[in-house]
Each structure stands twice: as structure tokens, then as C-alpha cells.
Design a binder for these strands. Structure first.
Lengths: 218, 218
DNA sequence: TTCCAAGCGGAACGCTCGTTCCGGTTGCGA
DNA sequence: TCGCAACCGGAACGAGCGTTCCGCTTGGAA
């Protein structure tokens, strides 16, 4: 999408650049159909290239997944920016709906999205900044309960991911219903939430631990 | 827990029976600490036995996981039964809270819980029957929106599982906050949910597809 | 048109992990 | 106490998958 950035080092030959895109597209399709445990050969076959080609473009499978997730993260920021244009009381809901759609298109990579190693990334920081803004606006407009913090948004998206991944084959839109329930639950109410939220920046800690946990499992 | 059932075929020698329990306990600990991808040797080491012993008791890894999940399912039924004793407007919430706790104690096995191959199991049928009863009571008492169906409950638990698994290391109780939001969202409101629910029995279809998806990934 | 750096396919390698196998050990009925 | 069927530990095997390697092909600058 923004080839100008990658080509900084050395402009890819035209066929190579095209293959890179084919590989990324195929990978999203394969992973979303079979989960991220799908083999590289599967991705290569789908892209119509050999495994060697995949490995010349991406140093390893994790890097391939990371690139997909990075793109997804950028798209999330775009969606969030768009939601800033909506009315204050609707912006947060619009973002969550958009994020749900993006997640639905990337089933299989969602674990890497929320637990990947991009804690320090600029994109993630930007997403947080805009998300906090959307939340604050919705709260000021009286559309969302004041106890909510940004970390709650992240967790809701993460739990939505479960529905997205599991129900994808039966009703690819089912997550919308779960989201509706969550949105209702986020509205202001005299009955406050009692369990404390994650501390600020807590999502990073969650991501870090999830990665470690995975590592210790092998 | 109910050894009388398993011993129907041939009573286990005392040390063998003890080892079986040690293995199950160790497996829950290991899987919940490192995910279900943890190796059998890890489980065996934790249980203080050799891998051979694990395999004499359980034909393969899937069977070990299945036994854990079967026990978890039985515990869920117990919790659900207990919730029937609560006031009609509180029973469903009590069940969900209890189910959350059980899930928290079995992080790592939750995927197998919701996608395992026990679609036809008697326990699952019983869970559904009680769950439907809890839901109907809550609806009759005016505590829960009338559009909700049993399948929504299953999906909410499944999405809760995501929070349980991911946030476990940072705040093992954090799922309670997400559940609170969900519970608020489940309350009656003039603004009805618009996206249609899963059809009756739809959870089985979800489970079946999830299993296939996994299989095609290998 | 020529030439070669860059690219390509896919066979082969090695590591991980589930599973099997076997020689030694032990609970427990007689 | 004796004898053996059941049990035990852990080395070894094999399948699957990520990764590497190498001989052939090709885009595109000169």
C-alpha cells in the first residue's frame, strides 16, 4: 500500500514486488481460512510461488505475520481517524464496528494482533491516542459510562475477536450482535462497574505476558 | 471424581489410579500456564511420571484434553444447577460468574471446550437445558432483554474466554469487569438488538466448523 | 541485443513433538 | 512369602513444518 517506505533500501524488481503482494494476499486468505498454524507451503501454493520466494521476501513466518498485522494496525488507525468525523456520541461505536469488520477480514491473525511484539510501535501509540479521544468525546456527550478507560476498549475488541474467529463460518456478521450487547452495556447507568479496570498501559503488559506464555509453551 | 464410571471396565491398580489423577492435575496446570500447545513431556515431568505412563492412561493428547474438558463441562453443569437456586433475576448472572471462574481455572483448554467434538454429549445437552431455563426465568423476571436466546449466552461465554486467557497474567479477575459490561448490556431496553441471533443449535455448527478449520490448517 | 544481479521453484535438511516400545519394577491376590 | 499381570520410565522413532540451498530463469540497464 505504501511501497515507497519499503523500497527505501533497494527498489524491488517489478515481478518481485508483484509477488510480494500476492504472497501477502494469499497469506491473509489462508490464515483466515485455516488459522495461523497453516503452513508456509500452503501460502506459497495459494500465491502461485515457491516457498523459496516467500522466504526471500520475508525472513521467516513470524515476519510475514508481523507484516500482515502491521497493515491491519494501520487500517485500524485509519478507521479510528474516520470515526473522529462522526458525531461525538457515535464516534466510538463507529470505530468499534469498523474494527470488528477489519478483524473479521483477518481471522486467524488476531492473536498476533493483540499479543504481537509491537508494544513500542508508533502506530499503536497513535491508535491509543485516537481511541482515548473517541472515548473521551463519547463520555462528554453522555453516551458512554464515565468509568470506562481506554484499556476497556482494547479488551472488548479482544473479546470480540473470539466471536469473530469462531462464528466466522456460520454467520460472518454475528460479532455485530455481540457488539450491540457490549455497546448497550457501555452506556451510562447509575449502577457503576465495580471491578477495577486495567491500569493505564496495561494492555502492553497483557501482550507481553501472552507472548511469554506462548514461548514457554514450546 | 466419579471413578466408578471409568473403573467399570477394569479397576485400576492403586498407584495407577493415583498417577491418573496426578496427570490430569498437572495437565490443567501446564496447559493453563503455557497453553494447550505445551508438550506431553512437560505434563509428564510436572506429574512426576514418564511420558509412557501418560500414554498408557490416555490414548493420545487429544484424549487427555478431552477428559479435562469433559470434567470442566460437568463442573459447568453443577454451577448451572446451583444457579437455579438463586432468585430468578439473579440466576443467570450467577451462572455466568461461576462459568467465568471455571474458565479462569482452565485457561489454555478453552478452545477445546467450545470447539471440541462433544456436540452430541449428554452433558452438553443438559447444560443447554439448564441454561435455557435460567435465561427464561431471568426474562420472565424482567431482568434480561427478551430478544436474547440461549446461543447468545454461549457466545458471551466464548468471548469472555478471550479476556480470561489473555489478561490472566496481569489481572486474573479482569474478566469480571468485561462480564459486568456484558450483563448491563443484557438488560431490557427499548432499543432492541438488530442483528439476528444464531439459530437454535447454532453453537454446534460453530463448534463443528471450528474443528474442521483447525484440521484443514495442518 | 547482451549480460548479470536479482529472482525463482522446490528438493532436502533438521528440529520439535506426538507416539511407540521394551527392559525393569511393583501392587496385590493366592 | 511368591508370582505375575499390570505398571513404570524414558530412549527412540517418525511425521510435519519452518527454513535453507542451489541450479535455472528473467527483468531491465547499458
Amino acid at each position: 500500500m505504501t511501497p515507497a517506505l519499503e523500497t527505501a533500501a533497494a527498489p524491488l524488481r517489478r515481478d518481485a514486488a508483484a509477488n510480494r503482494e500476492r504472497i501477502l494476499t494469499a497469506a491473509v486468505e489462508v490464515f483466515s481460512a485455516s488459522g495461523a498454524e497453516a503452513g508456509i507451503d500452503e501460502v506459497a501454493r495459494r500465491a502461485g510461488v515457491g516457498v523459496g520466494t516467500v522466504y526471500r521476501r520475508f525472513p521467516n513466518k513470524d515476519a510475514l505475520l508481523a507484516e500482515i498485522v502491521a497493515q491491519l494496525l494501520r487500517d485500524l488507525v485509519t478507521v479510528a481517524r474516520g470515526a473522529l468525523d462522526a458525531a461525538p456520541e457515535a464516534g466510538l461505536a463507529a470505530f468499534l464496528a469498523g474494527a470488528g469488520e477489519l478483524q473479521a477480514r483477518h481471522a486467524g491473525c488476531l492473536w498476533q494482533l493483540w499479543s504481537g511484539g509491537h508494544e513500542g510501535s508508533e502506530t499503536l501509540r497513535e491508535l491509543r491516542a485516537i481511541g482515548q479521544q473517541l472515548l473521551a468525546r463519547a463520555q462528554d456527550a453522555g453516551a458512554v459510562r464515565s468509568e470506562l478507560v481506554y484499556e476497556d476498549i482494547g479488551l472488548l475488541l479482544w473479546s470480540l475477536a473470539g466471536v469473530v474467529e469462531s462464528a466466522h463460518g456460520v454467520d460472518p456478521q454475528l460479532w455485530r450482535r455481540t457488539l450491540e450487547i457490549m455497546l448497550h452495556g457501555m452506556k451510562p447507568s447509575p449502577e457503576k462497574l465495580t471491578h477495577p479496570p486495567l491500569p493505564p498501559g496495561g494492555l502492553d503488559a497483557v501482550a507481553r505476558l501472552a507472548t511469554e506464555r506462548r514461548a514457554s509453551g514450546r
